[in-house]
Every structure is written in structure tokens, then in C-alpha cells.
């Protein structure tokens, strides 16, 4: 634990300037990811911690067909929002299946999007080989004990999972991230926000150092759509997903008019399953369709011995959520 400076600005521009100018500064929201990395694990060394919890970025407002969620809104607050319950029920499910009530009361939506991987090799500074922590050093997980790791978008350089539940329905919904930097504001769809590991697993998203997430804009589902989130794990509660799936379907006369599908627990980033959606759109809502969509969604996985079982598990997870949402029996 190295000594660091702690500051708590109360205006957005000031906070952004402070962090942008200082390569050793970082934002602190709920702290449920950051404090572990800095204080407990000692894998992130900071010179300055910029507490943003007093910035006016907390709260939810409803537009005609979107919900605007301030970055500092907590997971629990978002889950309790009536519009979420009514029009985005799978977002609520994903939130409530995540972490624990204590954590959800601290953890923010912005922080959830930016949570770091749970890979234990990443989180242990005594492990030398971790390309995400030390680019070029190798990957201890690929030859080590991997289970809570990714099989899609993974490669030998890094198989770290993005473990968020919330982000799974959010990518399915085409949520948009609003960002403020020193040079001004910009918006990026969440599906384009994350970067696959490639040769630089340390680069996880399109944010420049110091850019602040101010808001997440979430399109509402049509009133007649149905949605659901399924999270599969050994422990009945308080565990990250081995596999998960978020699905929203609009079904007309037994045919899928519009499908949205995304996967958790399997991707280096929250995975939108676009090819599977294409297959589902216009197809009959029957088990054969669902299985075909699952096959497409899991095409070309990268597995190691500890993660191989997740391929079939993820397919079954997809089939089950599609059955549940569509009301088709297995």
C-alpha cells in the first residue's frame, strides 16, 4: 500500500481536469472495485484518488423511449426504479442477481461498466505473467487454473472475463455511454465501448485517461416485448456468472419479430450475440431455432481445460432463456 492523495471535487469539469492532467490519478466512485485493487491486492498504484461521489451525476430520468441513468446511480437504486421494473425487467433481474445488497448499495452504474476482471492472476502482484497488468509478460491463467474466464474474444494473450451482469442486458439494448473529457463531450454505444484484448489486454475500452462517464442512456423495450436474464453458477447467490444470457423478444403469432440477445460469463467483453439475433429474427419461436441460435452464438470459442465445459453450458443457457422468455416448453 503506497501513500496517495485523496481529493473530492464537487464539479464535473474540475474532476475531469484533475484526473486528465495526472497520469497517476483515478476516479473513485463506490470503490468496490478500485479499493480492492489498490488496498487489498496492491496491483494498482495511485498517486491521487479523485472521489467523484459528490458530483451531480446521480439519478434517473425518463424520456419518451429511453431512460437516462446518471453514472453515480447505485445498482440498487437502478433496480428499484419503476420504469426499469416495467419496461426493462431483465435489467432489474441482472442487477439483483449481481453481488450482494451491501455491494449494490455502494456500487455505481459507471463503476459497474468499468469494473476490472476478477482473474486472480491479474489481482495478485506476486504473479509475474499477466499481460493485462504488465504488457508483454505473458498470461499465467492460460496455463493455470481457469474457470471464471472467458471463452469468446479470448486468446492466448489473455482470457480475462468481463464479469458484469448489468452490462449484458445493456449491450443487448444498445445502451449509449455519455462521456466527458477535457476537450468536451462524446457518446459511444456500449457495444463499441469495449475493446477486445488483441495484443494489448491492458487496453479495455475506448476511454482516454481522465474521460469521465457521466450518464448511460438506455433505450426502453417496446411495451409488448418480453425479456429475461438467466445467470448460471454453482453457488445459489453472491457469485459471478459461469454463464449468463439476457434476451428480449417480440413475438408475433409464434414468430420472433425482433430478438435481442447478449451473453455474460463467457466474454472478454459483454457479448452481444448479433448473428444469433439475425437467425432468430423472423424465425419460429421453437426449440430448434433456439438451439441453432445458441450454436451460432458460441462459434469459434477459445477454451482451456478449465473453461471447455462452458461452451455447452453457454449454449444451454441461451436455449433456456429463450424458452423462458418465449414461453416455449423444453
Amino acid at each position: 500500500m503506497n501513500a496517495f492523495e485523496y481529493v473530492r471535487p464537487d464539479d464535473v469539469a474540475g474532476a475531469v481536469t484533475m484526473v486528465s492532467r495526472d497520469p497517476h490519478a483515478s476516479y473513485l466512485a463506490g470503490g468496490t472495485t478500485l479499493l480492492d485493487l489498490v488496498l487489498k491486492d496492491g496491483v494498482v498504484e495511485l498517486g491521487r484518488v479523485v472521489d467523484i461521489t459528490r458530483l451531480p451525476l446521480r439519478g434517473i430520468s425518463r424520456g419518451d423511449d429511453t431512460l437516462r441513468v446518471g453514472a453515480l446511480t447505485t445498482m440498487e437504486e437502478l433496480a428499484a426504479d419503476p420504469t426499469v421494473t416495467e419496461r426493462l425487467p431483465f435489467v432489474r433481474e441482472a442487477l439483483l442477481l449481481g453481488a450482494s445488497p451491501q455491494l449494490r448499495n455502494m456500487a455505481t452504474v459507471g463503476g459497474n461498466i468499468l469494473q476490472r476482471t476478477r482473474c486472480r492472476y491479474f489481482r495478485d502482484p506476486t504473479v509475474a505473467a499477466c499481460n493485462k497488468r504488465a504488457p508483454g509478460s505473458g498470461c499465467a491463467a492460460v496455463t493455470g487454473v481457469a474457470r471464471m474466464h472467458a471463452i469468446l474474444g479470448a486468446r492466448a494473450a489473455c482470457i480475462a472475463l468481463h464479469a458484469s451482469d448489468l452490462c449484458v442486458p445493456l449491450v443487448a439494448l444498445d445502451a449509449v455511454v455519455h462521456i466527458q473529457g477535457v476537450g468536451g463531450k462524446r457518446s459511444v454505444p456500449l457495444t463499441e465501448f469495449y475493446v477486445l484484448p488483441g495484443d494489448r489486454p491492458d487496453i479495455e475500452n475506448v476511454l482516454q485517461h481522465g474521460e469521465l462517464i457521466t450518464e448511460v442512456e438506455v433505450p426502453l423495450l417496446p411495451v409488448n416485448a418480453r425479456s429475461g436474464y438467466l445467470k448460471v453458477r454453482d453457488r445459489a447467490s453472491y457469485e459471478f456468472a459461469l454463464t449468463s444470457a439476457a434476451a428480449a423478444l417480440l413475438i408475433e403469432d409464434g414468430t420472433i419479430a425482433r430478438a435481442r440477445l447478449a451473453l455474460g460469463g463467457v466474454g472478454t467483453i459483454p457479448r452481444r450475440a448479433r448473428e444469433a439475433e439475425e437467425l432468430l429474427n423472423g424465425a419460429p419461436a421453437v426449440n430448434q431455432t433456439f438451439r441453432a441460435a445458441a450454436e451460432v452464438a458460441l462459434r469459434d470459442p477459445f477454451t482451456v481445460s478449465g473453461t471447455a465445459f462452458k461452451v455447452e453450458l453457454a449454449k444451454r443457457t441461451i436455449v433456456r432463456i429463450l424458452q423462458t422468455v418465449s414461453g416455449v416448453q423444453s
Binding site: 504473479v127 499465467a140 496455463t143 493455470g144 487454473v145 447467490s237
Partner: peptide, 21 residues
Amino acid sequence: DPGSGRIANATFGDYLIPVNA
């Protein structure tokens, strides 16, 4: 860990004990 003998899951986030559920 098969190569290093390090315990790969020495935290309560990674070593699962039963919760109420």
C-alpha cells in the same frame, strides 16, 4: 496452481463457502 504451487483462489471472492441461499 499446478505450476507454481500458489493457491489460486485464496480470497472469499474466489473460494466459495455456502451463503444463506
